[in-house]
Nucleic acid binder design. Sequence first.
DNA 1: TGGTAGAGGCTTTTT
DNA 2: GCCTCTACCA
Length: 737
Amino acid sequence: MSHAAELNERQREAILATEGPILVIAGAGSGKTRVLTERIAHLVGDLGVSPYQILAFTFTNKAAREMKDRLERARPGATEMLWVGTFHSTGVRILRRHGEAVGVHRDFSIYDADDSVGLVKAVLSRHPNDARFVKSPRALRDRISRMKNDLVTPALAGEKAVGAGEQRVAALYAEYERELRRANALDFDDLIMKVVELFAASDEVREVYARRFRYILVDEFQDTNPIQMAMIDGLSSVHRNLFVVGDDDQSIYSWRGARVEHILEFEGIYPGTQVIRLEQNYRSTQTILDAANGVIEHNAGRKGKRLWTEGGVGEKVRVAGSVDEEAEALAVLAAVKREVAAGTSLKDIAILYRTNAQSRALEDVFKMGSMPYQIIGSVRFYERAEVRDVLAYCKALANPADDLSVKRIINVPRRGIGKTSVDQIEEIAVRRSGSMLDAMRTPGDGLGAAAAARCRSFLDVFDGLKLIADTEVAPHAIDAILKTTGYLKYLEEVYPDVEARVENVEELLSAAYTFAESAEDKSLRAFLEEIALVADVDSIDLESGQLTLMTLHNAKGLEFDTVIVTGMEEGLFPHYNSIDDPAAVEEERRLFYVGMTRARRRLFLTFAGMRRRLGLMEGGVPSRFLSEIPDRCLEEPFEPMLAPSGPLFSGRPGARWGSGRAIVNEYAQPAPAAEESFSQDAPAAGYAVGMRVMHERFGKGIVRRVEGRGGELRVTVIFDAGGERKFLASYAPMRPL
DNA sequence: TGGTAGAGGCTTTTT
DNA sequence: GCCTCTACCA
């Protein structure tokens, strides 16, 4: 074992305990990643176990990559035959090899969430009368997903269905499954579910893997769902050397079917389990830990654990209220500036929020203040329309049975194949249980002559591309798609904001080139697989020198010197949809706990008295979680009080909470709470319309508009080089000429 | 078939 | 407030 001296007693114990079922309860920042890595290093280096016999599950691809990198450094060569990955990527690996046994053809497509919703829509459109049983296509997809994660097959759903609504949902689920199979596609859940089915269907295949993997490790065990548990169980069915690491206090994915019970009941499921607890924290200050402990203690259903550190007491947690979300964003910007002035690097600061929608106000202010930031999540790269178009070509070429993708590209760029024709083609395909492409090849009399001719020319394009896609590497195939179809020209014709879209397509192309440089299998299919499984967090660059913005969920597993959690209001955090369910509120509280424990040195919490929600201004009261932080951890005791009846809070009448005291009045006034709470630099120099200015990044320009005052003075500038931009006068690196 | 305008829904979190 | 879908007209 390397660096044994630096490990604490518990960590060493966890690394050395290699046989049988082991449950490690690892608090935030207790060095669990290190334990996992060192344990593998110990197995390989000291016990002579072949990496071929080890399988490790991580929550994200990024975590997998990091684990491999660390291990490679500790034991060069050890990672070669080792399997490390997410449940989904591991599922794909298994299914590509042995999927045929459960009807999964080896060149299957992977449908992401949007694809699934698209398929659900297609199914629903054939049963217009069933629309009344589901809230939305998305809601139905979520229900289907939940069923899959709970190991409920369509048949089982049909048996268990009570009432007409559930009967129909089960029937739609069954049809959705049939459609997936017709398209030779698997959705995200299938990537795991089909493995479980495979193991159930074939003891032989199960044993191939169960015998091979003598040691199985699972990270973030608190967020496994029943289907993943079943996969783990099958894989470990021979050797039972199952090592799971988790923290019941950080379980934040129950909405995805995750069960904390897997941790709480692990000892019962696997008799003879050795339990090891890691409670010493190596990340945060004692004050931050006390604050986090104080909050999480309000949860009833937990194993119980108290983090401690040998590090210092550190600074107190700061709470600041603002009038509205823009003022909150300004307060955040001021805090960031102050942190930077005090010597913290931007890359060590993170802004966290409950919902992606909250990023907008922050982004606006950061843009105006010329603050460099990277945003994780929000509108994901692979969800952009133009990227999806190109990917649809790729998917259809890799798997011609993929009707969803074919439908997306059939008239993009425009080929005069309209909705009517597409419907007719689909009809033929469904009737024959074949693919739409086949239907187009021999349409019979189900399609008009003119439409058939247009389909023919589409097929010519498609077949030409298919030849290239089957033989060339991924970037060449994508390049051919763009050139042959004239896609970039199409973008120009259709969208006003061409530039950004062309850039996105080029980024996709360059991602394919990067992929081809390092990947062993450089085919289009391999590239599709890679990007189907990447999450947004996978692309986070912590060395970019930028401020990082993301949801609390995405922050799991990360750490920063300074963390600012925004939107600490009832209804937002905890969220409206959780507020009247005690178990759901506990999950929100765990999410807050996750957020707090990301901070190494300083923690800021902000809330706003008003916020725009779905286009309407609504008033809010500070989150109950704020009052759960022990006073001694706070810079100033937090004294929530009931809002006086006034215009500001009339949005949510009777919104009472906690002790029934009122919000301090100053939050209700349009006072610059930002300056008061975090202090701020001197206000901006005077700008006037028509004035010439010089900006550090954008050069010279002329002032078109001046709004606001003091620290919130905003200046709109038209630059000589072209382009109009809005800045915060006090922050932008700009001066009058 | 394609373009546009208005309506409606959406936002909780994601592999 | 923004995006997507639908209905209607050219």
